[in-house]
Every structure is written in structure tokens, then in C-alpha cells.
Design a protein around this nucleic acid. Structure first.
Lengths: 219, 219
DNA sequence: ACAAAAATTTAGATTTGTCTAAAAATAGAT
DNA sequence: ATCTATTTTTAGACAAATCTAAATTTTTGT
């Protein structure tokens, strides 16, 4: 089955919002996609007719089995292109998201499989998110939030929970990126902010909000 | 200025059809773009309003200076992507056109400049067509039609005059591609067909139509 | 349990790019 | 020079994706 760009963007948004949630609300989709709730309702009807989602009016929405496959295909393309941009074209890891949003809609399957091979079948994109394989299989990452890391224990940043320009700008400013090694030195109960020591060098402070979207693994 | 995909396709079509012709007709655009003449008229009004073309009703259309710049930008993207697909992803030179038709609409200038650099600033695409540089400068190719080549003179194929699937299929079948060396052995006046000897080996016959869209240079 | 608030859907309109059918303009042939 | 054939444009309609405003359903607080 073929999909328009708009349809693909809705499918991807449902997939992303579905994590944790049982069903996704019209309002959540409207916020994610920067459209009005009324527009979301229209599209949900269309996707339901195509059997991509399960949807009953007022009851929320989830992807069908078929919908999940489609979503993983789009995410595979997005993350492979991001890897290409960083690894081959020397983009910064914080500048690739918008471009990949366009590239992910190129339809050729042959293209994406050859790109995958050219890149050496990478398993993670530059933000640390796993890349689905050509059958839609995706490595489940045991992600630990930085905000729950133990004090004085060396960890490495493995993923960021969003690709917003604002978040990526903040990370760059603090000197944090994928693979950065650090320890939590102190937690302030007042506001949940953390004091980190990066690679035994600079000390930086991050807010509770930031610490909750940074994922780490112990070293 | 930003353009929709449909607008970009019209701009590119006017550019391609303008070669040789003084002005381009509505019917020619309608044939090239597989749309009805009435749709072409609508779009021409829109592009005229954006000052991309010079157009007076019933009088045909040509690109403005600005329009030419836009067209060269799109062609640059198309040909760089074709080069990438063949050189890096190992596509056959006859399979890349359709995919490049999609990739050429990706908007990031940074992407295309980095791609150009990654590819080593190639001057010709896999069909032998020159790639405009980032300022829109394009090497004017002194193209000689195979149908006008001298008898018994070694030449090399440097370009093909169209990217239609049908043409590319025929070339593949005849064992002809970019860089193939051959000599014209005989010209049949009855139908304008040519007998060629490829690399001093096989002899193949090509029609007048085919010979007129193959471009060669003397060796 | 029920009224107010919030979320969601419906109804009707808009924009973009396309179409068909009909009208108008141009070009060609004698 | 004029009439016919061809080309092109106009007029009106449609599908996709969006919007605003109004109606409806669900949730929440007391």
C-alpha cells in the first residue's frame, strides 16, 4: 500500500506517542503534528478506512499490526538517513533531524536497502536510537534515565528522548552528546536538578527536565 | 523563494523543453508532464505571478533569469543524486532516474553542497550530462549526435538525450552505455538506421530515432 | 449525580493541483 | 483571405489536507 507524506507523518506520530501510553489522543497528535484537532479527526478516519489504525470516535487510537510495520519502515528510513548525514556527509548530530524528516518519505525500497548496505548495516542512529532492520525488527533498548542514575557512578550517554532543535541546542551548549561519559555528583531535591562531572573535567548543572530525556548506560 | 514539488517539476520541464526552441508550448508541457493542457495553463499563471517565467496567453512560455537559476538548482540536485546512486550505492546507470526525480525535491542547500563535496565535485552525471556547480554554472557540452558521426571513426558515447525507461531498456539490450566505444560501419539511407561495431567486437543495428538521441565524442 | 470544563467530532470553507467540457484564439491550407 | 483544424484558455468541479466555529461527548470536581 502507498501513503501520502501527510499520512506517513500521522502514522509515525502515532507510533512515537504510543510508547508507554495504551492509546493516543486526538489532542496529543494535534500537538505533535502542529495541526488542529479537527484535522486530526479527519485523517484518523482516513487511516482507519485503510486499516492502518484502530480507532473509535472519542476512544483514542492505536496502530494496527499493519500500521506498526509501516511506522517501522518510515523510522528505518529516517534513522538510516541520519546516520548517512553524520557519518558520510559530516553533519553535526544535532543538525540532521529536519533533513531526515524530508528524506524519510523517499519511496524506493531498493534505495533504502542499498543505503543500509553502503553504511554497513548500522544498528543505532546518531542520537543513539536503534535502527529497525529490513524486516522491521528493532533492538529493544534497556534505557536508563539519567535522572535515575546512581551517584558517583560513571555512565555514558546513549540516547536523547527528543530531537527538538531546542533540546539539541541546549545539549551542545552544555557540552553533552552521544557517548559523553559523566558521573552524577549531586542531586538537588528542591528542583530535581543534577550536578554532573563530565569526563572528570568540567562540572555542569542540568535541570530535572533535561535529565529525564537523557538516557545512559553504566560503564 | 520556496516552491512546491509541482512547481519545481514545471520549472524543470520548461528548462528542458526550452533547449533549441525559442518558447515552449502549453501542449509540449502537457505531454512532458503527463497532465492536461488546462492544468498547464493554471500553473503557468501561478509561475508568472511568481516571476519565474515570462508568459503571455497563447504566446508560449520561457524561463525568466530567476527561473533559470531555480531550474539549474533542481537539475544540480537531480544529477548529483544520480551520481551518488551509481557511484556509491551501486545502482545501474539505467535505474536511477526515477529515484532521483524524488530526491531532487529535498530542500536543504547544505545537504546538496555536502553531498557535492562527498562525491568529489563530479562534473558529469552517469548519463553524461553536465552537473551545474553551486553558482548555477554548467559546462556547455559540444554534443555530437551519433547519427551525424563519420563512418569508420572511433567514438565514445558521452550522453543520452532522454532518461525514459524505454530508451534505457533498449540501450541495455543493445549493450550500449556511457563510455562505450564504437564506430559507425554503415548508414542505410532507406530508414536512416546505422550499423555499429562495438569495441571491434559485436555489430549492432540502431534505428535513426535511437541514433539521434545518442551523443558521442571522437577519440 | 450533575454541572462545568475539556476533549473530540461535525459542518462548512479554503488552498493546491488536477480534471472535463466548452469557448476563444491562432495557424494552416487552398 | 477565409475557413477549418489545432491549440490554448476559461469555467466549473473534485480530491486532499487543512482551517474555524459550532455541536457533541467524555471527564472531572464537588
Amino acid at each position: 500500500m502507498k501513503f501520502t507524506m501527510a499520512e506517513e507523518n500521522y502514522i509515525k506520530a502515532v507510533y512515537h506517542l504510543q510508547h508507554g501510553q495504551e492509546v493516543v489522543s486526538t489532542n496529543a497528535l494535534s500537538a505533535e503534528l502542529q495541526t488542529k484537532p479537527a484535522s486530526v479527526t479527519d485523517m484518523l478516519k482516513k487511516l482507519k478506512a485503510k486499516k492502518i489504525i484502530n480507532y473509535e470516535p472519542y476512544r483514542g487510537v492505536k496502530l494496527s499490526a499493519e500500521g506498526k510495520k509501516v511506522a517501522l519502515g518510515i523510522i528505518r528510513k529516517h534513522r538510516l538517513w541520519e546516520y548517512f548525514l553524520v557519518d558520510k556527509l559530516q553533519f553535526g548530530w544535532d543538525e540532521v533531524h529536519e533533513v531526515a524528516e524530508e528524506l524519510e518519505h523517499i519511496s524506493s525500497n531498493k534505495l533504502i536497502d542499498k543505503l543500509d548496505e553502503f553504511l554497513g548495516h548500522p544498528k543505532f542512529d546518531p542520537h543513539g536510537d536503534p535502527i529497525p532492520d529490513s524486516k522491521g525488527k528493532i533492538i529493544a533498548q534497556p534505557q536508563e534515565q539519567l535522572s535515575r542514575a546512581l551517584l558517583h557512578t560513571p555512565v555514558e550517554i546513549t540516547a536523547v528522548g527528543s530531537q527538538s532543535t531546542e533540546l539539541l541546542e541546549l545539549l551542545k551548549h552544555k557540552g553533552l552528546q552521544m557517548g559523553t561519559r559523566l558521573e552524577v555528583k549531586k542531586v538537588f531535591d528542591f528542583d530535581g536538578s543534577l550536578e554532573l562531572r563530565i569526563k572528570n573535567q568540567q562540572v555542569v548543572t542540568v535541570s530535572r527536565e533535561l535529565a529525564s530525556v537523557l538516557f545512559v548506560k553504566s560503564l
